[in-house]
Each structure stands twice: as C-alpha cells, then as structure tokens.
Design a protein around this nucleic acid. Sequence first.
DNA 1: GACATCACG
DNA 2: GACGTACGTGATGTCC
Length: 928
Amino acid sequence: MSFGTGCHLHLIDGSAFIFRAFHALPPLTRKSDGLPIGAVAGFCNMLFKMVEDNTGPNAPTHVAVIFDHSGKSFRNDLYDLYKANRPPAPEELVPQFPLTRVATKAFNIACIEKEGYEADDIIAALSVQAREAGGRVTIISSDKDLMQLVGGGVEMFDAMKNKRIGVEQVEEKFGVGPDRVIDVQALAGDSVDNVPGAPGIGIKTAALLINEYGDLETLLDRAEEIKQPKRRQTLLEKREQIELSKQLVTLDVNTPIDFSMETLEVQDPDPEVLLPFLAEMEFRTLTKRVADKIGVDAPIIAEPKAAEVAAPEQPAIDPDKYECVRDAEALQRWIDLAYKRGWVAVDTETTGLDEMVVDLVGISLAVEVGEACYIPLTHKDGSDDLFGTDQLSDGQMNEVQALEMLKPLLEDPAVIKVFQNAKYDCKIFTRYGVNVAPIDDTLLMSYALNAGRHNHGMDVLSERYLDHSPIPIKSLLGTGKSAITFDRVAIDEATKYAAEDADITLRLWQMFKPQLHANQVTTVYETLERPLVPVLAQMEMNGVQVDRDTLSRMSNAFAQKMAALEAEIHELAGETFNVGSPAQVGQILFEKMELPGGKKGKTGKYSTPADVLEDLATEHDMPARILDWRQLSKLKSTYTDALQTHINAETGRVHTSYLQTGANTGRLASTDPNLQNIPVRTEDGRRIREAFVAAPGNTLISLDYSQIELRILAHVARIDSLKQAFRDGHDIHAMTASEMFDVPLDEMTPDIRRQAKAINFGVIYGISGFGLARNLRIPRGEAQGFINRYFERFPGIKEYMDDTVAFAKDHKYVQTLFGRKIHTPEIGAKGPQAGFAKRAAINAPIQGTAADIIRRAMIRMPDAIKDLPAKMLLQVHDELIFEVADDAVDQTIDVVRDIMENAADPAVHLDVPLVVDAGTGANWAQAH
DNA sequence: GACATCACG
DNA sequence: GACGTACGTGATGTCC
C-alpha cells in the first residue's frame, strides 16, 4: 500500500532509546552468562508494546527504527568539537548495540541508519516526506532536538514516560512554538552535544528574546537595541558562533532517503525468528507474552545449568544442491534472502593465502541450512602461459557489479555476516572497498567454547560437530609443484567446495550460538574475541617498515663469521662435517672426542642442546664455537634472510598475521613472519631490531607492562606482602630474595636477586625442584629447599596452586579473571602427562589473565588514538608498538599508557597497580 | 613430516 | 616410589 492520507508512520529513535533504557532500568544481566542485557530488554518491551497496540486509532500503518551510524556526521565538518564532550559508551552497553539491531529485525521492523548522518536527520527527512504525502507521524523519542519537527500532523511520544509530546508540550519546554525551537537552541546551546550557543543565555532568556524579536536573524540584526549591556555584547560578539550553533541544531530534512515509504509498512513478525531470538536473550516473561499473542507455544528457556545443548536436527550436507550464481538477478534473490533472515554466512575464495597480495576469485553465501550458493567472479580458462592468452571463463558475473550489489548487505548493521575466520575475509573485502560489519566468527566461538579441547579449523569442527568431512581443498588444487590456484578450478567443482564451506559455517554458527550462553562464555566472546577482529586486521594491514639494506648487510656479516667459525670447527675436529646437523655434532663431540655428558634422545641420537654445550664449553673450544655458529645461523636464516622475503612489494612493509586462536591461554600468536620472537636477549640479535624502523617523520614507541604476570599472581593468590611491594613500587625480585634468604635489601647482591627472580618465574610456570635446579644449575636438593622456603614465606602461593589444580580436576577447565575458560582434559591423566597438565593448569589463569588485559587495551585503542597521528603496529604479549608522527610522541604515550594501565577496569578490580614502561626511537632497538 | 634446536614473552 | 619435568608459542634445517 502506498503511503498517503490515512497512513500513520511511527519513527522510533533507536539509539536514544537504548541510552535512556540503559540508564533508567536496573542493570539486568542474562542469567546464564552475565551478559548485560538491560537495554535490549527495555528496547524489546517497547517494540512489543508497539506491535501489541497495532489496532485502534493511533496504530501505525508504517514503522521504522532509526539508529545513529557510528562515526562522524556532517556536523563534525561544520564544527570539529561537535559532541566532543561525549564520554564513550559504557562498557556494559557496547555489546547491546548490535543486539538491538538484531532485535529490530526479529520483530520484522525496518532498521535504518546512514553513514554521515545522525538518526535525527533521517527522522526529520522521513517526517517531512510523510507529512507532505498527507500522512500522520509519531516520533517515538523524547529528544528535545527532535521537537523542531512537531506540528502539522507530526507529534512525539515519550515511550519511557508513556507521554505524548505535541505543540503544547514543546511550547512548555522551549517557550516558543516548534518552528522557533532551533532559534532558541542556537542561543541556549547544549552542553551535552557541545553546541556552543551564546554564553550566558539559557532557554528562558533565549525564548524571551525570540518572542520579542520574532526570529533569530532579526534578533541578531537588531542586537544593538538590547538594553542589558552584557547580553547585547554577547550577541554582537558571538554572532558567528550563534549562527554556527543554529546550523548544528537544524535537522537536515533533505537527508537522502534511498528506499520507498512502502517498505516500512507494518508486518507481522515471523514467530520462527522472533521467538528464538527472545529465548536466546532469556527474556522469559516477554517470550511468553509474545507466544501467547501469536497463539503458539513459548520455547523453553533452559536454566543455565545445562552445559550440553542438544544439536538441532539438520538435513544432510549435499554439495550437488548448491546453486552457482551467474547473473545479477540470481544474486539479488540471495541478497533479498539474507536481508529477510538478518544473517548470512559468507566465505571468500582467493588465489592464495596472503590477504595482502591475493586476488578475489569468488564468494559463497549461505542463508539457511543446506541452502548455499557460489558466485564465481574471476575464474580463468585457457592456458596459463606467458602470452596472457588466458581469459575469464564464461558464465560469471562482473566482479565490480557483484561487489557493488553485495556491499550494502555486507555493511548493513542489521545483518550479521558469519564467517569461519572473519579476519581473513574482512581483510580481502577491505582491499576491495567493502567494510564488513557486524560479524560473527565460528572459529572464535569454538575458541571461546573449546580452547584446550581441540583445534578450531573448519575441517576439525565439521567432522567433530557435523559428522561430515568437507571436500579437501587439495582435491581441487593438487599439491606440490603442480598445484594450481583457485581461479584455475572449474566453476562447477568450485561451487560445490565453496558453497559447502558457507553451509558448514552457517550450521556451526547455529550450533555454537546457544552453546555460548549455556557454557557462560558469551561475555568472553563478545568482549574479548569478536571486537578484536577489526583491531588485528587493521594492525596487520598497517604493517611495519623494515629496512632491507640493513638486513642484507647483516646477512653478509653473519655469513663471513660463520664461514670462519666453520673452518675452525673442522680444524678442531680433524674432519669436515655438517655443523648444522645435531646428529653429526653429537657424533663428533661424544664419540670421536669422547666428551662427557652425551645423552641419547628417543631417536637414538646424541642430544646437543645449548645448555649441554654450554657446560662443555667451560673445558673445550669446539662446543663454544658450535654455539657461536648456531647463534649466527639462527639469526641469519630465520631473521636477516627470511625477513627480507616478507617485505611486501607494494607497501615496502612487513605484514605479519596474528592468530587469535593460536594459544589456548588467550595469547595471540604471530606467523608469516613471526614478529613476536625477534631477538633481543643477545647483543648481536638485538641489532636485528635496528632494521625495524619508523617511516620518515615518525617515531616508533613501545609500551610494555612491567611484571604483569607476577602482579596477577600476587592478586589471584592474595599475597599481601607482594601486593604491597607492587603498590610501593619496590624491586620485586630483590624483595623476594630478602624475604627468602633473610638478606636486608641494602645488602642484596646481584646473584641472590637472580636466584629469587628464577624462583618467581618458576612459580608462574608451576615450579618443580628439578626444573629450578636445571635453570639455576644447582643441585636438585638445594633447589627443592628454595621452593620449600618460598612456600613457607608466601603460603598463599601453595594454596593457590593446590586450589587451581583441584578446580581443574573438578571442572576439567581453569578460568582467567575475565571468565575465559581453558580446558584441561589431561588433568586426570596418570603418568608423565600428569605433571605437564598440572603445571599448565597453574600457569594458564595467570598467562591468560595477562592476555585478556592486553586484549582489552587493544580493543579500546583505536577509539583512544583516533585523533592522534598514530598507528598501532605490533603486539608482543605484554608490549604494544606504535608508529607516531614525531610531534605527537609524548601525547600518544600518555593516551596509550592510560588505556593499558586501566585495561582491567571496570570488569575486574586488581589489588595491584598495573605499570607500563615506555620507550621511543627511530627503530625498534632504540624504542624497546 | 617428524625431530631437534632456538628465537621471544 | 617412579615417572619425567619448568608455562606459552613459530621457523628453520636435517634426515628419513
């Protein structure tokens, strides 16, 4: 039905409502996992009320919810301080934003937002359109900024107070009619939005003046006539500021609207979408009310105890059923389906694995279990020869057109895009001009649910949870030298493979979603996993500049030294052999030269690790030379040579890849290349960091947490003396040494301190007498004595270790302070594994809590530094490295340090302060 | 592809 | 009493 006379449009100011609901309602959390959910609950109740009252004289015929688009609006171009006073949204509210979009969709209500505009502008444009078409409008909001729209068939409704706002109420508030509201606002300003206005003039005075002179322009033109000197002066001097203020408060009724009013027509919600959503949120009362209203049975909401969620029945996976999308018409059908559902599983196929380099080949989508498609884009046939005779295969959509069609869907805040490893696909899409959001990621869901139990790759997950082995990529590409790239795969084969991946992703997503709640890891997923994806993607794309010449020179120098050492070693051995072969080294040292200490490993060969050679080096030259050679060999092959091959031809920088699920504890891992193990401990090695440089005009800054794991240990084990030492800023190893060996601090020797430091670290790792003895090279009995004394002096430590192991045995997992679960399935094992599992269980909460803290800092960082000329480049477990314009170094350090030191708040209050040290320089060696 | 070794926190 | 042993990673070269 077209919009016109007799129609009634309801426009719900979504963003404003969420904020008000959040602050007005008690802090409700979801029972199963503590996810804050109060604002979503208030929002859903309001939507339901609207749906419930859909008869009667005030019932809407058309309805839409309008949200603010995150980011800046055109008003920031007018005035860069606009809304600059706004504090960031409360942490408990942040995960609720995307949920309110999903809720809107679930109620089958149009969900509207637009980049560069605020919700108010869209509401203004729609109101005017509707009014001009002869219809009525009710704006569900109490925002005074919208009051300028009231009148002529437009009124407002305060849903929290259940009160309508018409012309009369506007006059009551502003002292003028709706048509003069912006004049009053321009004068009075607004401290909340940081609209300057006229200093010293509030609403009362403003209304008085406007009523006297008729309108703002007349008032300003005749300001000379005002009797009060102060008022007159202000209006004369601040004219420009007042006029700017008027621009800021004036809503843009010409905001482009790219859909027709008919699409807003009221529709009944689909019970199969709405009820599962409400049940998932665990709104027990509302779920029942909605079910009653529709006349169906309410879904049962499990009490949080049930850890196992029964897998829903699903049709079998059949790759022959997938569709190959070859034209715009077919693609549009899939896009429509995705909008209708509010979610879509997406997978990209590319020519390789390096997201910074590869080309897009095709995209697959799945919207319903078993219903998936593949959109081939750049498959080629013909010979792949040097003459460029290969051309695009027939029957493919134009790549640019397909991306243009998909972009609005992929960027639509109301449609969740589901990936297996979203970071990869999002980086590809970013290179093609599409910023995908919001996302869900089955890789990360599995990690939150199952870290420590198994890996989280698609093959593993599919076999384990769907009992289905996906088509192996090798069956399409082949292996080794004859392997082809995906663009050379026949489109029919590619369709089966690619669409299957999207189908599997969707199935896994539907299975994992309820499990997150049932296992109480939704908060972990929502606050520590999902928001990290765009942050890591940006860091990886930033890359770090690496100077090839520096590396190349070092490689040559290392090669020369190695050649000289090799000659010496062969001379000493009396024969030539491969110094790089541990087996041959063992043979020479322990058989030919008959040195002591030769131990054979499980493969029957002598073991020659560094600590063994170090012991021999005190008596003999050869092991010392071998150690030197090995160090140089390592530095050359792994660093100075290999790093050069990782310099991106286009950017001239090195782009690592972070594995968010690489370590069970929550730590990240870095690959291709690993930039988390660049040498630092030896002088020669440290020089490699000189090759990591800042771009011209920039400086590298490095900020690292001081002793973060020991601080966490002091907190979780509740060791008062350690906590106090950290609060007092004392040298913690010296203090430990003093406690243990009864040496006053002013008589402390470096050696005693070194031993205490080794013990402190040992404790974090789940200390054993044997391990400490080996580390300190002291007799085992003596080491055990140290440990015993340590436990006597700090009894809380032993208690913590025992409690943690007991918890692990009870639950088969341990937890960080932020709720991350690390599963310990081996904890009950007998034999040698038992020790491993125990120590891992003791270490995991400490290492994992530290990892959670730096993740929280990283997630907050983009917003914190958005106005600074600074880029976050690298993370090395307790250290963050930034590249920043020379003149903003100090300011950036202040901002970053503040975020890092307060990263645990407000979710966890640590009893110890977190301290962050900073360094700066033209290269990483200086900055560290 | 397994193993040994060694780079980092 | 014996078992083995510090926690968490990734890259490289050798050898089968």
